[in-house]
Design a protein around this nucleic acid. Structure first.
Length: 960
DNA sequence: ACACTCACG
DNA sequence: GACGTACGTGAGTGTT
């Protein structure tokens, strides 16, 4: 018995329309638009990749529309009559779809006078009669009528069970079965035709009945069972618009029913057996990929595996007629003539003699890529397990130092003594003359400092180089949320070297079965660890050359690279928190929450999980019948702060209680509890980890724990800040840039009134209120403040209206006034957007680029989102550059001033936190303020002063 | 893994 | 025909 056959039918024509609207306007080297073709190609690739999977295709064919005429036109002359012409840059892609299909050596069905839908239906029926399963690759709602059919009534002789039809939407990666149809239309697939006939379809110009949409149609059909029953029931309905429409529209509905009916008896030009899919021959596919510049796919083809990625070297179509430079994708370099990564070429260094040999070679090479392997992701707790080095392609080794010792190994494998190894490595790692390159080398710096007392310098970092060249565009095409924001080593190796690295998961497993790296057998450990160093070495060679070409040298060398050891030092310092104070707070919060919980359950009349927005929404709006429940796209009521505040204002006591409950549980779980757990047992302090590539704008981000979002806005929240304390005899000092983003906006947009106000130390929101409304009071100042921030974030009349609680057109009037008073702001926004549209990136005053690949998207929401981000990025990013420059200069400046005991602990975007002896406060404050105020100099001379606010005290809260 | 909510600048 | 309205983050909880 052979396994069940599974036929995939690809609705090619429908696919390219969707791909066209979803993908950026790419062109191939000949200048032909190929965005939709690229989408189509990756979709086929994905399907072919599923070939050997359980539910994957054994047979596959692409079905295309051959001509616009079909039997439906004979039934209804207006069928598809009002369909707009396809966009002009899609038209030349139609023939390319056929080329792409041929390139994959796939059978293609296109019959004159028959629509693709009917061919798909006919093939699907024929296949299930043979007992095959069928997957229709489409999201066309007409085709959903076929889902779930099994051919039971009409099996071929000898076939005992029919197959089953489902659908696959490759864009959403969603399987659509019977349940999904019911969820979407409220009726099962066999009744879907009746629903579609009633509601009609404006795209295909199927008339339906005017005034009946999906909701009404679905209700009519599920109430009556069928279209004819629904139409028959009309005369007995009570007088209503719906009644009239049903009676008058009867003929149209019946005609529509025949139009949506799929023909299942079309002759099949290609036999089902001839659609067998054995694999994709490399030719002519390679030629096709090459000719359209799909190089990333081409690389995959060579590598022989992996699902396709987005193209790395397609040029988005030129947007400007003036021939503005097109935004380039990341990797435009030809790969150097390196041998492919060969994991068997690496050496496992197990004797001091071999280590000496490697160190000598590294000293001669002047450049070594290194990578440490450890027992934990937390560099403040991890133990050193080994270190790898690379000196050239495939010229790499791994030095195990802490393998074995558990029962995984009968005997500990021979290894160089750790102290001896470190003594040998120290001159190399500390030598001014030898560059140490790492991927996120901040981690290795901390490990080697902590575990061996070695201060690694000077360093280069491929992750940060990647970030400085490709912030914003590296994320494109990979799943969001990936660690490193698209600048992780595995992704960089894939994107720039076309190489798939071994992953940590591959080696150590995942979840419960995960083992520490020290228990990985040495041969595997060597392959993994040395590969990482090898890949880092190769990436560095590529990036070193690309950095100046991308105009990223300045920001890398002057802003980010100097910051690496500084941030490593801050993380290592950590900050002391008062565990007892946190525990006490936790206890108080727990008691108050328990009381609130009882009250809330009483008010609700039943116990429920308050922390579940779903259950809470049902209680508030269904059970208690409060009005104004808004359901989002997930069908859930929103219960966020603004909604609960409104309910509380309308006299719903439960809403206020829930708000209070939420605040306290949040403070407890995220802060008081988590912070206690984060105290390092060795140092007694909390050590956050800063990511230098975490935020697209160039800001740092803080994790494990996040110390950049410690409460400050409420009194109860500030209690948590009070638990951040200095050591005995010291104080904490906090220095903030005051209104730095508004100051930068005033400078960059050249707004004389705002610059003048900042120069004379005026209250900036009051000045704005005066300029806009002619008077300053609490109201106008508050409005002005909101508008000022709105400007920084990329304004919209709806957004501003929502914030101010006014209508959009009133908000527009305010925006107009703002622009009129400050025309520089309008120009800034206009020029910034024009530039980003033409070049693809925004730039800070220090040359940091942030890419916006969706700035010219055809999808309005996507495009407008990019526009707002692009307006904000230069301002937020310049502010980030400035504080980074201040940080890099800070400790040397303090040391020079004779203040070596001042420690820099934290950065919170516009604030630096220090710990210092109380006696140093005055002198240190002066140095800190000067360094911060002058941080833009000499590279950039601002036309506004940078104001610094400084405070100090026995806790972080008191320092404000 | 994702949605929701909320903490910060 | 739906979307989605202020920029940038990270974490905890509940649900799937």
């Amino acid at each position: 018995m052979s396994d069940t056959q599974h036929l995939y039918l690809v609705d090619g024509s429908a696919y390219i329309f969707r791909a066209y609207h979803r993908l950026p306007p790419l062109t191939n080297p000949q200048g032909t638009p190929v965005g939709a073709v690229y989408g189509y190609t990756t979709m086929l690739w994905k399907l072919a990749d599923d070939l050997h999977k359980a539910d994957g295709p054994t047979h596959l064919a692409v079905v295309l529309d051959k001509s616009s005429h079909s039997f439906r036109n004979d039934l209804y002359a207006d069928y598809k009559a009002h369909r707009p012409d396809p966009p002009e840059d899609l038209v030349p892609q139609f023939p390319l779809i056929r080329d792409a299909t041929r390139a994959f050596s796939l059978p293609m069905v296109e019959e004159p006078n028959v629509e693709a839908d009917d061919m798909i239906a006919s093939y699907a029926k024929a296949a299930i009669r043979k007992g095959w399963d069928v997957t229709i690759v489409s999201s066309d709602k007409d085709l959903m009528q076929l889902i779930g059919q099994c051919g039971e009534d009409d099996l071929e002789p000898g076939v005992t069970t029919g197959g089953c039809i489902d659908m696959l939407d490759t864009m959403k990666d969603a399987r659509i079965g019977r349940e999904e149809v019911i969820a979407k239309f409220g009726v099962p697939p066999e009744q879907l035709g009746d629903v579609l006939a009633l509601m009609g379809d404006s795209v295909d110009n199927i008339p339906g009945i005017y005034g009946i949409g999906p909701k009404t149609a679905s209700k009519l059909i599920s109430d009556n069972g069928s279209l004819s029953a629904a139409l028959d029931s009309a005369p007995s309905l009570k007088a209503s618009k719906l009644k009239d429409r049903l009676i008058e529209g009867r003929a149209m509905a019946e005609l529509s029913r025949t139009l949506v009916e799929l023909r299942c008896d079309c002759p099949l030009p290609i036999a089902l057996e001839d659609m067998a899919l054995d694999g994709i021959p490399p030719e002519p596919l390679a030629t096709f990929l090459e000719s359209h510049g799909f190089h990333s796919l081409l690389k995959r083809l060579g590598a022989g595996s992996g699902s396709p990625d987005r193209p790395t070297n397609l040029n988005p179509a030129k947007q400007s007629q003036k021939g503005a430079p097109a935004a380039q994708q990341g990797n435009t370099q030809p790969l150097p003539d390196w041998p492919a990564v060969d994991r068997d070429a690496y050496e496992c260094v197990q004797t001091i003699d071999r280590l000496e040999h490697w160190v000598a070679r590294a000293l001669a090479a002047r450049l070594v890529a290194i990578d440490t392997e450890t027992s934990s992701l937390d560099p403040m707790r991890a133990e050193l397990t080994g270190i790898s080095m690379a000196l050239g392609p495939n010229d790499a080794c791994y030095v195990p130092l802490g393998h074995g010792g558990s029962d995984m190994f009968a005997d500990k494998p021979p290894q160089v003594d750790r102290a001896a190894a470190m003594a040998m490595l120290r001159p190399l790692l500390e030598s001014d003359a030898i560059l140490k390159v790492g991927q996120n080398i901040k981690y290795d710096i901390t490990i080697l400092q902590r575990c061996a007392g070695i201060t690694v310098a000077p360093v280069e970092d491929t992750m940060i180089m990647s970030f400085d060249m490709d912030a914003g565009r590296a994320l494109d095409g990979i799943g969001a949320g990936g660690i490193g924001g698209g600048h992780g080593m595995d992704e960089l190796a894939q994107r720039h070297l076309g190489h798939t690295t071994l992953t940590f998961k591959d080696i150590c497993g995942t979840g419960k079965k995960a083992i520490p790296f020290g228990e990985v057998p040495l041969d595997k450990a060597t392959q993994y660890a040395a590969e990482d160093a090898d890949v880092t070495w190769r990436l560095y060679q590529l990036f070193k050359r690309r950095l100046p070409e991308e105009g990223a040298t300045r920001v890398y060398e002057r802003v980010d690279r100097p910051l690496i050891p500084v941030v490593a030092g801050m993380e290592r310092e950590g900050i002391r928190v008062d565990r007892a104070a946190l525990a006490k707070l936790s206890e108080t919060f727990a008691e108050t929450t328990a009381g609130l919980e009882t009250e809330i359950h009483e008010l609700a009349g039943e116990p429920f999980t308050i922390g579940s927005p779903k259950q809470l929404g049902d209680v508030l709006f269904d059970k208690l019948g409060h009005k104004g429940g808004k359901k989002g796209k997930s069908g859930q009521y929103s219960t966020d702060q603004s909604i609960l505040e409104r309910l509380a204002g309308e006299g719903a006591p439960i809403a206020g209680k829930v708000l209070e409950w939420r605040q306290l549980t949040k403070l407890r779980s995220t802060y008081t509890e988590a912070l206690q757990a984060a105290i390092n047992p060795d140092t007694g302090r909390v050590h956050t980890s800063y990511s230098l590539v975490g935020a697209q704008t160039g800001r740092l981000s803080s994790t494990d724990p996040n110390l950049q979002n410690i409460p400050i806005r409420t009194a109860i929240g500030r209690e948590i800040r009070k638990a951040f304390v200095p050591d005995e005899g010291n104080v904490l000092l906090a220095a903030d840039y005051s209104q730095i983003e508004l100051r930068l906006a005033a400078h960059m947009a050249d707004v004389p009134q705002l610059k003048e106000a900042f120069a004379s130390g005026e209250d900036i929101h009051s000045r704005t209120a005066l300029e806009m409304f002619g008077t300053v009071d609490r109201d106008t100042r508050a409005q002005a403040k909101t508008v000022n921030f709105a400007i920084l974030y990329g304004i919209s009349r709806w957004g501003l209206g929502g914030r101010l609680g006014i209508e959009a057109d009133e908000a527009q009037a305010i925006i107009d006034t703002y622009f009129q008073r400050f025309p520089g702001i309008r120009n800034y926004i206009h020029e910034t957007l024009e530039s980003v549209r033409a070049k693809g990136y925004s730039e800070t005053l220090f040359g940091r680029k942030t890419w916006f690949p969706r700035i010219n998207s055809k999808q309005q929401a996507e495009r407008q989102g990019s526009e707002r981000a692009a307006i904000n990025a230069p301002i937020q990013g310049t502010s980030a550059d400035i504080i980074k420059r201040a940080m890099a200069r800070m400790l040397p400046a303090l040391r020079e001033a004779g203040l070596p005991d001042v420690r820099m602990l934290l950065q919170v975007h516009d604030e630096l936190v220090f710990e210092l002896p109380e006696s140093d406060v005055e002198a240190a404050g002066a140095v800190i303020a000067r360094v911060m105020a002058d941080a833009a100099l000499p590279a950039v001379e601002l036309t506004v002063p940078l104001g610094i606010e400084i405070g100090h005290g026995p806790s972080w809260d008191d320092a404000h």
